[in-house]
Simulated assay, not measured.
Amino acid sequence: MYYDGIGTEANEKKGFELMLKVAKSSSLGAIHLKHHAQFNIGRAYFEGYGVEQNNKEAERWWIQAADDGSPNASVLAQTMLGMLYSRPDFLNLKQAFFWHSEACGNGSLESQGILGVMYLQGDGIKQSEASAYECLKEAADRGNVYAQGRLVQLFYNKKLFTKASDLARRVVAYTDVEELARDTGCLAAYITKGIAYACFYLSRCLALGNGLRMDKEEAEKYFKRACELDPVVSHDFHLDVAYGIL
């Protein structure tokens, strides 16, 4: 409560101290809170909130919270370890795949979408378009916006333009990213990225008349929105178009 300012004024330092107390407690009454406290301590170190920022300490506490992938442990910690091991400074894609697999098996919607992308790109696992589609489709159906955006990409690259444009139309209609994050438990950054993917591929469909009527003006509008949502991804898209890849 102190950490997030729920029901009281936020006090990150006091919140961190209380979480540390719970995590180190041997009381039977604190057992059911231990993994959650360990996750939040890792989160505090990762964000530098109430304590000096330290990714190694974040990793250490998340490993404790993840408890070897136990379904009774912190599934959020399992997902965050998957993300941590995908970062350049901690890069270990096999570990990333392992932790996302554990989290997905324990119900993580976020990790299910990321697993689909890892299968699609062959990151940490042998590339498998069939497994990628299975993960992305199920995650998309459950409301994972990032998975929806990447599924648009998969449809487009398979030249299933009508499917790509139909799904993209639904995804670009999303406007309240924070509400989607609350409803799905997925990170706002990944939701934004998913909408950017949908905007870009809808732009290509409109520009080329793939799967729907050509409309250059609408195409430009969605390309600009993709750039606003995620400049880095949009830059890569722009290069792909310039070099004739898309």
Rank of each mutant, 00 (worst) to 15 (best):
I6T: 12
A132N: 08
Q64R: 13
A44T: 09
S108K: 04
A96S: 14
G143S: 09
E178L: 14
E17M: 11
F200A: 03
S128G: 06
A242T: 01
V171E: 03
G42R: 04
G69A: 13
M1N: 12
G122W: 05
V145A: 05
R142P: 00
S74H: 07
E134G: 06
A66C: 05
K158Q: 15
E220Q: 15
D68S: 15
E102Q: 15
K56W: 12
K34D: 11
E217N: 05
L154E: 01
R170S: 14
G69V: 13
E134P: 09
Y49C: 12
L33T: 10
S26A: 12
D166A: 09
W99L: 06
V171Y: 02
K21Q: 08
H36M: 00
K221I: 12
E110F: 11
R150Y: 14
A66K: 10
V171D: 01
A139W: 07
A139N: 06
Q78I: 07
N54E: 03
Q121F: 10
A66S: 08
M118G: 07
F223G: 06
Y201S: 00
A207V: 12
G122D: 04
A242D: 00
R60Y: 04
A23E: 02
K24D: 13
E17N: 05
T184A: 06
I6Q: 14
W61E: 04
S26P: 12
D240Y: 08
F16Q: 07
W99A: 04
D240R: 07
A140G: 09
R169Y: 10
P231Y: 00
Q78D: 11
L33W: 08
V233M: 15
Y45E: 08
H100P: 05
W62E: 05
E217A: 12
L76S: 15
Q38K: 07
E220G: 13
A130Q: 11
G82C: 01
V152N: 01
T175E: 13
Y3D: 08
W62R: 00
V51H: 00
G50K: 07
D4V: 07
K14D: 09
K163F: 05
N210D: 13
V172G: 11
I6F: 13
C205G: 02
H32V: 13
Q64M: 13
H32M: 01
N55F: 10
N106D: 07
H35M: 01
I245G: 04
A196F: 09
R182D: 11
Q64E: 15
A23R: 07
V172T: 05
A147L: 02
A23L: 09
L20C: 00
